[in-house]
Design a protein around this nucleic acid. Sequence first.
DNA 1: GAATAGATCCGC
DNA 2: CGGATCTATTCA
Length: 176
Amino acid sequence: MLSSDINQRLDREFFTRSTVVVAQELLGKVLKFYNYYGIIIETEAYVGQDDPACHAARGKTKRTSIMYGEAGYSYVYLIYGIYYCLNIVTENVNFPAAVLIRGLQLTDNKQLLNGPGKICRELGINKTHNSLDLINHPNFAVFNANISFEHMSTPRIGISKGKEKLWRFVVLNQHN
DNA sequence: GAATAGATCCGC
DNA sequence: CGGATCTATTCA
């Protein structure tokens, strides 16, 4: 991929939509985090208080309050005491939802980061990167890129409830 | 206060 | 398949 293929930064409106749609359309977009650029190749949708797998399923808490805010903000949390997971908040204010970024293909060295914990470990994402505005942050953003692809839907990984939803999206192949 | 489950990863 | 490792949330 050429750097010239990275063009428009995704705006607030992109994320202020159905989480399942945003999760699918994020595939093939480019995540920028400081000096890292990675093509998003795997995502999952976590959708509102009626989704038992969503952290906000039991209502608003200190941790989940970010998901009730404006779309386009980061939601980073510690999982299993060891790994961080990066999400991007979606949908309207007061509708708690987010897209989990599960897979990245780094653009410079083609390194494959398959798994949310691996992404945050490699890029150095931690709790200090929670609740940042990806629409305005100078070093944290998502860009459009001229990448076409096909993807499939599967059940989400690692959850105990909500397994029947096919809300995990994975790129099958990519070509220019 | 104490108990417990958890959107993971790695090594055996 | 279990261990690492810890915190947010729930329950008493």
